[in-house]
Design a protein around this nucleic acid. Structure first.
Lengths: 155, 155
DNA sequence: GTGAATTGGTATTTACAATGCGTATTATCA
DNA sequence: TGATAATACGCATTGTAAATACCAATTCAC
């Protein structure tokens, strides 16, 4: 039972963005803060944008920000969107008739119920509950105080 | 959110074994029935044996059978044993201090709660609930490397 | 209008799980 | 006791998904 790195990293970025919902975060900035590859994070932001969780804007000064207040985004919604295409078991893929136990399998229903229980527990919390204001201070010490200057161009 | 093939195939084999708790099933027989690689199934049986869910017996006429009645084995126990070593997210691996958000991360606790909800839902059912008596009646032609020796059906 | 910054999309490389295969060990039957 | 059948274990191979790199499209600043 494993979540993909998409979901893992996506949650971390959203936690950070929820800490400053008004700001615009570039993928380069998030990549520096978390010490993760920029291109990989950009892909996840794309997915989140398609799902309507964040809004992106190209060009200078662009980046991503939450499309809704963090109180209106449940953790379940995030995981659901980020885990698209990764069914619990192979049987759940959209391939009818592939499973040889198709009609007689009484397990499928139970697995689905367990998955719903997992997501329901996640839906009991919203993004605001796990927001973090502090920079994780991954590797090099970033003495970046809250100078309210969204200048962050370096690479 | 995905279970490994270990868990997927393990559950199928246990479903079959629960349909005839008194019988002994060889891995070759199960592999033929399900059209799955024999060696892979043997490894899963090993894991299940170590977990105390099945008991194996070597030698002629040997094989595996449930160590307890199928009413006494919950689905949660099976999944828990089969998913060992596959944490939900990387942070959950046994590597303290690796996650840069160690102290401040309020997500970890929620993910754990969701995982427990998933397993709790599974614990509401036992293996007997999903037993299947019928053989899946070999669907696709399988390129089995077994030497096509018709097994003498043991009593 | 020009240039720089930033996302969007596609292709390639890499890592890990899944699979296949061979060998050793052990128990049962003749 | 010997032959056979099955598990147990390790390693090589394969396949799929993640991770990375690169190029195109777009927007703001000047």
């Amino acid at each position: 039972m494993r979540l993909t790195s998409f979901t893992d990293f996506g949650l971390r970025m959203l936690m950070r963005m929820a800490g400053a919902p008004e700001r615009v975060f570039s993928t380069a900035e998030l990549a520096t803060e978390f010490g993760l590859p920029r291109n990989h994070l950009a892909k996840i932001i794309q997915r989140l944008a398609h799902a309507g969780i964040v809004e992106t804007r190209r060009g200078g000064g662009g980046g991503a920000q939450l499309a809704r207040p963090p109180q209106a985004i449940t953790l379940g919604e995030i995981v659901r969107q980020l885990e698209v295409g990764h069914p619990i078991v192979e049987c759940f893929a959209e391939m009818p008739g592939l499973c040889s136990l198709d009609g007689k399998c009484r397990l499928k229903f139970r697995l689905r119920a367990a998955e719903l229980a997992f997501l329901a527990e996640l839906d009991r919390h919203v993004l605001a509950d796990i927001a973090l204001e502090n920079v994780p201070t991954g590797g090099p010490p970033l003495p970046q105080q809250t100078t309210a200057t969204p200048r962050s161009d370096q690479a």
